[in-house]
C-alpha cells in the first residue's frame, strides 16, 4: 500500500486518491462546524458589533461579504493554477480533480463579489456599474471561469480533458495580469480608491475584526466545499469505472 509505505513522501501519501478519501472524510465535519462558527461570529460582528464608517455610513457592512469573495475569486484560480501544474508535471489524478472542482466554486464566489459590489456601488458611487479597471477585469475573470467550466463539460472523458484544460488555465494565468493592465490603461478615469484602501491595514480595528472573521469564514467554506466536491468527483469517476467494468463483463458472458 502506498499509504503505509514509509519510502513514499508525506505529500505523495496525502495525495494518493484512496488515502485522500480516507483522511478527507474526517476533515469535512470539523471544518464545516468551524466554518459555521466563523460565519455566525462574522455576521454578528458585521451587523451588531461594528461601527458605521465615517464616510460610507452603514454601507461599509457590505464590504464584509464583498471583499472575502473578491479574495476567494483570486484564491480559487490560484488553486487551479497549482493543480494544473500538478496535472502537467506529475500527471497526478488528484490534481485533475482539484482543478476541475475549483472552477465552479471560483465562478460562484466571483459572481457573489460582482453582485455585492454592484449593490454596494449604488449608494456609494451612485451607480450599479462603472467600466473601471477593477470591475471590468472581475467580470472578465468570471467569464474565464465560465469558459473553463464549459470546456470541462465539453469533454466526455475527464481524464483526457485534464491536460488541455490545465494548459488553458495556465495560459489564462499569464493573461489575467495583462488583461488587468490593459483594462486599467483603457480606463484612466480616477475611481474612488477609498473602497480598496479600506481593505488596507490602516483600517480601525473595529472594522478590521468583522472583515478578518468573514475572511476566515469564506476561506474555510471554500476549503470544505472543495474537499467535498473533490470527494464527489472521485466517487463519480469510480462509478464510471465500475459501470464500464460491469458492461465489459456482461458483454463477455453471453446471456
Amino acid at each position: 500500500m502506498i499509504a503505509d509505505n514509509p519510502r513514499v513522501g508525506f505529500f505523495s501519501r496525502l495525495a494518493q486518491p484512496g488515502y485522500f478519501l480516507d483522511w478527507s472524510r474526517h476533515m469535512i465535519l470539523p471544518l464545516a462546524a468551524l466554518c459555521a462558527v466563523f460565519f455566525a461570529l462574522g455576521l454578528w460582528f458585521a451587523f451588531f458589533n461594528s461601527p458605521a464608517d465615517y464616510q460610507m455610513g452603514n454601507t461599509v457592512r457590505i464590504m464584509y461579504i464583498h471583499v472575502p469573495n473578491a479574495w476567494l475569486s483570486q484564491f480559487a484560480y490560484g488553486v487551479m493554477v497549482v493543480a494544473s501544474i500538478g496535472s502537467l508535471v506529475w500527471r497526478h489524478p488528484l490534481a485533475d480533480v482539484a482543478a476541475k472542482t475549483a472552477a465552479p466554486l471560483g465562478a460562484t464566489f466571483t459572481a457573489i463579489m460582482l453582485i455585492t459590489g454592484a449593490i454596494w456601488g449604488r449608494p456609494t458611487w451612485g451607480t450599479y456599474w462603472v467600466w473601471d479597471g477593477r470591475l471590468t477585469s472581475s467580470l472578465v475573470h468570471l467569464f474565464i471561469y465560465l469558459g473553463i467550466i464549459a470546456l470541462w463539460r465539453a469533454f466526455d472523458d475527464p481524464v483526457r480533458a485534464a491536460r488541455p484544460i490545465a494548459i488553458i488555465t495556465l495560459v489564462g494565468a499569464i493573461n489575467i495580469p495583462i488583461i488587468k493592465f490593459s483594462v486599467d490603461w483603457w480606463n484612466v478615469l480616477p475611481q474612488p480608491a477609498s473602497v480598496i484602501r479600506a481593505g488596507g491595514p490602516t483600517m480601525p480595528a473595529a472594522i478590521l475584526t468583522p472583515l478578518l472573521v468573514m475572511f476566515g469564514a469564506y476561506t474555510l467554506l471554500f476549503l470544505v466545499l472543495h474537499l467535498a466536491a473533490m470527494r464527489t468527483e472521485l466517487a463519480r469517476r469510480r462509478i464510471t469505472a465500475l459501470q464500464a467494468r460491469t458492461a465489459r463483463s456482461q458483454a463477455g458472458t453471453p446471456a
Binding site: F143, G147, L151, A154, F155, I178, S182
Partner: peptide, 24 residues
C-alpha cells in the same frame, strides 16, 4: 484550436475560452 482538437464540436467551444484573451 489545439486544446479542443479532439472534440467533435471544438470550433464552438474554443472561441468561448479564447475570447477573453482578445481584450488586450
Amino acid at each position: 484550436a489545439a486544446i479542443t482538437v479532439s472534440l467533435p464540436r471544438g470550433g464552438l467551444i474554443a472561441p468561448i475560452v479564447i475570447l477573453p484573451l482578445a481584450i488586450p
